[in-house]
Design a protein around this nucleic acid. Structure first.
Length: 474
RNA sequence: GACCCCUUCGUCUAUCGGUGAGGACUCAAGAUUUUCAUUCUUGCAAGAGGGGUUCAACUCCCCUAGGGGUCGCCA
């Protein structure tokens, strides 16, 4: 069997789209699963849309997520260059070849002419497509206008009355009539190729075995198939992934959702959760398992379990999953990832910082929430009036007084000893439940709810514990 | 509008002709916990509609409806 080679081919227009992440991930998983190669190719053929630095940030984001490509602009490889703007000659060469074979032609129509033509077709209720007026130009006239330096494009001549049929790996057999395909522009007037030409040429030379892309490409697949035929190349296998959807079931867009992967990372989502969650949007193994690491996904992934229907991007489940990873990942991993949200002084004492993260991760969904939970250990939360009154009550003061005395002879890290005196206090004072615990928690952290006493005291340390207890006494 | 794709709980999904249609998220109730969180248990909730084929259809076929995608010198 032919070696599996797939490519992820984003345009450097600013950020990694959630849909792009899913495609990149499936490319990666499929390649790994099949012991094939995953190629990263930058499709920067639209000079108007290109954003400076986008390529670098795209590569960095993918790398940070652990999705590393075998070949690409930064890693190199034997099929480079992997940036389309560096392969312009190759595209032009094949466009010319198509013209020579009679499969493509020069077109001098201006955008104004074209839009007028389209308006008329629209008004007539016709299928909107190029009317081929430049195909009728004589060779002499074409050459004359070319020599005169007239702006022009090169168009692909689609066949008439042709039935395109192909087998899509997820959709099965798909058929389309050539009458629905426009004479696509192959080379733009600025000399750059369009996606259709560039991708086809590159996929061929990079020996791509499976073209994995979003369903939005399904209807232009006939154009690509035709290009392969005209160029005399063998077409790859087609894999059109279901779309990721907005809540209203339209294609996921930034109008309705945050769609940039970077922004989810900035919000404090963990890459493990993001990857796990996105992997399950459109693919699912046969069993009921929900939690998968990247490695496990590589092991389990297969194209034949990719769904046909689009999947709504549901943050609620992502949040749940993130919480799962907040608790299950190694403590130091969470601690390191959370660091950027913490003031430097809060992490100086690393052992103490770890204790804080350990307590806080149980109660957090996103990374920045850890900082909020940590706050109470550096400065008690300000008491609200009711809590203040509660703390002033006679029984509360008794608890505080007693606890303060008992604690003096105890090690703050000795959880067992703390539990012992805590229980002893209940017996001794005859105060229990919220009347016992609330004053202590209020005095120690300024709020009625939170971690258990040994945890709080262990983090605070003995000195600080005594100070806070003392400060609450009147 | 034309063409193409899609259709199981609110959401992500399992099921590849024979199931009380399963799991997860959400939500509700309960248990655990001094509290919060976690965790556990239970519950609510689905085959778009109509025809076929078959002893048997969520599963195969057809029609209808609904949703989506595409129709750029953007990808």
């Amino acid at each position: 069997m032919k070696e599996v080679r797939v490519r992820f081919a984003p345009s450097p227009t600013g950020y990694l789209h959630i849909g792009g992440l899913r495609t990149a991930l499936y490319d990666f998983l499929f390649a790994r699963n099949q012991s094939g190669k995953a190629v990263l190719r930058i499709e920067d053929t639209d000079q108007n849309r290109e954003v400076k630095g986008a390529t670098e940030s795209l590569i960095a984001t993918l790398h940070n997520l652990g999705i590393d490509f075998d070949e690409g602009p930064e890693t190199g490889g034997e099929y480079g260059p992997y940036i389309q703007s560096q392969r312009l000659d190759l595209y032009r060469q094949h466009a010319l070849e198509l013209i020579n074979k009679g499969h493509a032609y020069y077109c001098f129509c201006s955008t104004a002419t074209l839009s007028q033509m389209r308006e008329e077709q629209q008004a007539e209720g016709e299928f909107v497509k190029y009317d081929r007026r430049c195909l009728k130009l004589s060779k002499e006239e074409v050459n004359a206008r070319l020599n005169a330096g007239e702006p022009h494009v090169i168009r692909l001549k689609m066949p008439d009355n042709y039935r395109f049929a192909f087998d899509d790996e997820v959709r099965g057999h798909v058929q389309m009539d050539s009458s629905q395909s426009d004479d696509q522009v192959l080379i733009k007037s600025d000399g750059f190729p369009t996606y259709h030409l560039a991708a086809t040429v590159d996929d061929h030379y990079m020996q791509i075995s499976h073209v994995i892309r979003g369903e939005e490409w399904l209807s232009s697949t006939p154009k690509h198939i035709w290009l392969y035929e005209c160029l005399g190349w063998e077409a790859p296998k087609w894999v059109h992934l279901p779309l990721i959807l907005n809540t209203d079931r339209s294609k996921l867009s930034k109008r309705m959702h945050d769609v940039s992967v970077e922004s989810y990372i900035q919000k404090g989502y963990l890459k493990e959760a993001l990857i796990n969650f996105v992997a399950l949007l459109g693919w699912h193994p046969a069993d009921d398992r929900e939690l998968y690491s990247l490695e496990e996904l590589c092991e389990a992934f297969s194209l034949d379990r990719v769904n046909k229907a689009g999947a709504v991007f549901d943050l609620t489940k992502l949040d749940w999953m993130n919480g799962q990873y907040m608790r299950s990942l190694p403590l130091h991993t969470i601690a390191d990832r959370a660091k950027q949200w913490f003031p430097p002084q809060w992490t100086e004492d690393y052992q103490r910082y770890l204790k804080i993260i350990s307590a806080a991760r149980e109660r957090s969904t996103l990374l920045p929430e850890l900082t909020e939970y940590a706050r109470i250990f550096f400065k008690p939360a300000p008491l609200n009036p009711e809590d203040k009154d509660f703390l002033l009550a006679e029984s509360s003061q008794k608890v505080l007084q007693w606890y303060l005395q008992q604690l003096t002879g105890i090690d703050a890290d000795d959880a067992e000893a703390i539990n012992t005196i805590t229980k002893a206090g209940i017996k001794e004072l005859g105060i229990k439940g919220k009347y016992y615990y609330m004053p202590l928690r209020l005095a120690l952290i300024g709020q009625a709810h939170g971690p258990d006493l040994p945890t709080i005291i262990g983090i605070l340390g003995k000195d600080e514990t005594l100070i806070r207890l003392g400060a609450a006494r009147h």
